[in-house]
């Protein structure tokens, strides 16, 4: 239980910290970009929307800071993230609602695939250290050393432009009707294949190397030698003794580096013009759509936190030591 309470406290505080960061950033930065934007849209904006933006960006300077802070939280609890300036006057929450499923589908799926595949390969590499499998290490190091978006660009150049196997951009073919029909789903899969492949290729290296090192480290634990002394089959020792223990730090590592991985994949969406959160974020940045930028940052942070909670649950299921305190 102690484990869960600690984690719960951590998540609450992290969520609070993210919101607070979001509150202070526009207030601390020089200039008043939102003010100038507001004056540009003067008269076109609904009074309520103006009020909401004032709360979000601290334009009610006559109010004391703590009052602004409380108003801000109050507004967030109602799900009001302001309105987008670029797609005026759509609420930010609506834009996020539209693009989040695409990101969760693409980034979420491919990250999980990369993690599972990378971990399995890491087991093999770690277990067969000193054999020909070692040759894979320089290759994985290379892929972990290049920026994600560059691999994406190369993938487009090779598979999209030169070979013409995959579309260069977009999330589905303009010829199909979005909805729960086969041709739409097929199109989505086809369009997401290349982005997904790039995410897997560029993020898998970290999981491979991490798991390999964990396997190597765990392999010299006594219980692995005991397992060999018992004459258990190779696969038993490898999976039930070495990998089963090495996976625990691997999962904590997964949770902690998720923020980093997600950061990298967001740019990927832009490269492929894939209509997810990352694409929207970069669009918002170049269009000075501050409410949308901030809203997206919050949502990304919360998604990473939720993914962390899931990873914690998996960890707790795998490690009996977190379940019962002796």
């Amino acid at each position: 239980m102690k484990f869960f309470i600690r984690r719960a406290v951590f998540y609450v505080i992290t969520a609070w910290a993210a919101v607070t960061l979001n509150f202070f950033i526009p207030r601390l930065l020089p200039g008043d970009p939102v003010q100038s934007l507001l004056s540009r849209y003067q008269g076109n904006i609904d009074v309520n929307a103006v009020k909401s933006l004032r709360v979000l960006f601290g334009l009610d300077s006559q109010k004391p800071l703590w009052q602004q802070y409380f108003d801000y939280f109050g507004q967030l609890f109602h799900g009001d993230l302001g309105i987008s300036l670029q797609s005026f006057p759509t609420p930010v929450s609506e834009i996020i609602g539209q693009s989040l499923p695409w990101t969760i589908g693409l980034v979420g799926m491919s990250t999980i695939i990369a993690f599972v595949l990378g971990t399995l390969l890491g087991i093999v590499l770690g277990w067969h250290r000193g054999t020909k499998w070692d040759a894979l290490i320089p290759l994985t190091t290379f892929f972990s050393s290049v920026p994600y978006f560059w691999i994406a660009l190369i993938a487009i150049a090779v598979f999209g432009v030169n070979l013409g196997w995959f579309p260069l951009s977009g999330s589905y073919s303009p010829d199909v009707m979005p909805g729960l029909n086969m041709s739409f789903i097929a199109s989505v899969c086809y369009y997401s294949f290349l982005p997904a492949l790039t995410i897997v290729i560029s993020s898998i290296a970290g999981w491979i190397l991490g798991m390999r090192n964990m396997i190597v480290t765990v392999s010299s634990e006594d219980y692995v030698t005991v397992a060999q002394a018992k004459g258990l089959p190779e696969s038993d020792v490898m999976f039930h003794y070495a990998a089963r223990n090495a996976i625990l730090p691997q999962i904590s590592g997964f949770a902690l580096s998720l923020g980093f991985v997600v950061s990298g994949t967001l740019v990927m969406e832009q490269v492929f013009s894939y209509q997810g959160i990352g694409y929207r974020l970069l669009q918002a940045t170049s269009n000075n759509d501050y409410p949308l930028m901030q809203g997206i940052f919050l949502i990304i942070t919360f998604s990473v936190l939720i993914a962390n909670i899931l990873a914690d649950i998996v960890y707790a299921l795998l490690d009996p030591r977190t379940r019962k305190e002796a």
């Binding site: 960061l21 974020l281 940052f297």
Partner: peptide
């Protein structure tokens, strides 16, 4: 260490992007 973990979990790049975007 709680402080450290918070910074670890909050995705850095989007944060940098919004700060840079606002700063010009």
């Amino acid at each position: 260490s709680m402080f450290t973990n918070i910074f670890l979990v909050i995705p850095g790049l989007p944060l940098i992007i919004i700060i840079m975007g606002m700063m010009k």
